[in-house]
């Protein structure tokens, strides 16, 4: 297995354009005297599925907030198609871990998914079509669409959050530990759903997780973060076929190799666990 260096740009074959869809360039951030992110460099090509992994407290969520434009980094920048990002941009959708807090409890599922579209001035009729399409893509019934999100199970609620991202017609979807709060079976279903949607809709996905198995299973490449302040330890390409299966793929030697490699990378650098 080969590895690319941290600063090497994404494989050019994955995109017709030269510029990466999303890139962190010398990105550093911290809170007060606490430097969380040292200097992060990586680039994601169009249509790629990239996972960011690292131990708890390494600053993955801070990094994702910076990538989403919710947090301006102290140093360096985030670039979308080569342009510096100063605030959230159109076409970048975010799915947060805590679905119970990221969905509006006073709005039905339909209204939750429709809000970004309605706010953007989409006609009510067009918005409804887009919303129903997105709900169907994530496997939610019309019956569920009329309910309040908290009347649904956790896995269904996260599907609503994913539908909200899809209805926005994003080119990039950023996900912060999206499956950490659901049970194992639901988690596997949602992982397969995301891989399927990512390929079907040709979107770029950047997903933060602390789960190495999840990262390997989902990704085209895995960005391993470690250290304090955090830096990119290595970017590991995942040598697995595009068609993946929860049981057979995870039993292949390639999966085990990638898993062992990432595990080693995370363990090698002792991480400050004062969190």
């Amino acid at each position: 297995m080969t590895t690319t260096s941290a600063t090497q740009s994404a494989p050019s074959g994955a995109s017709g354009e030269d510029r990466p869809e999303l890139a962190a360039v010398g990105l550093g951030h911290g809170y007060g005297d606490n430097e969380v992110l040292g200097s992060i460099d990586f680039a994601v090509a169009r249509g790629e599925f990239v996972c960011l992994v690292g131990p708890s407290g390494v600053g993955k969520s801070t990094l994702l907030r910076c990538l989403a434009g919710l947090q301006l980094p102290r140093r360096g920048s985030v670039q979308v198609k080569g342009v510096d990002m100063k605030a959230p941009v159109w076409g970048v959708a975010v799915v947060f871990q805590d679905y119970s807090r990221s969905l509006m409890p006073w709005s039905t599922v339909i209204d939750n998914v429709a809000l970004p579209l309605v706010a953007a001035g989409t006609k009510k009729k067009d918005a409804r079509v887009a919303v129903l399409e997105a709900l169907e893509q994530v496997g939610l019934t019309r019956d569920a669409a009329e309910k309040y999100p908290w009347q649904l199970s956790g896995g269904m609620q996260q599907r609503v959050a994913i539908a909200r991202a899809l209805a926005y017609k994003p080119s990039v979807v950023l996900m912060d530990e999206p499956f950490a709060s659901v049970d194992a079976q639901t988690r596997a279903d949602l992982e397969d759903l995301m891989r399927e949607l990512q390929r079907e809709l040709d979107i770029t996905v950047v997903l933060v997780t602390h789960d190495i198995d999840e990262a390997v299973y989902l990704s085209d490449r895995v960005v391993v973060l470690s250290g304090s302040p955090a830096s990119v330890a290595e970017i590991v390409p995942i040598d697995l076929p595009r068609e993946r299966d929860q049981i057979t793929t995870k039993a292949t030697p390639a999966f085990a190799d990638a898993r062992a490699r990432i595990y080693g990378l995370i363990r090698r650098v002792p991480v400050d666990t004062h969190e």
């Binding site: 989403a68 159109w90 807090r101 990221s102 509006m104 970004p116 706010a119």
Partner: peptide
């Protein structure tokens, strides 16, 4: 108000009036 909802509003570019 849940701060995460305000993050959602910001990331989906929902304007002040909405």
């Amino acid at each position: 108000i849940e701060p995460l909802l305000l993050d959602v509003a910001k990331s989906y570019k929902i304007g002040a009036a909405r």
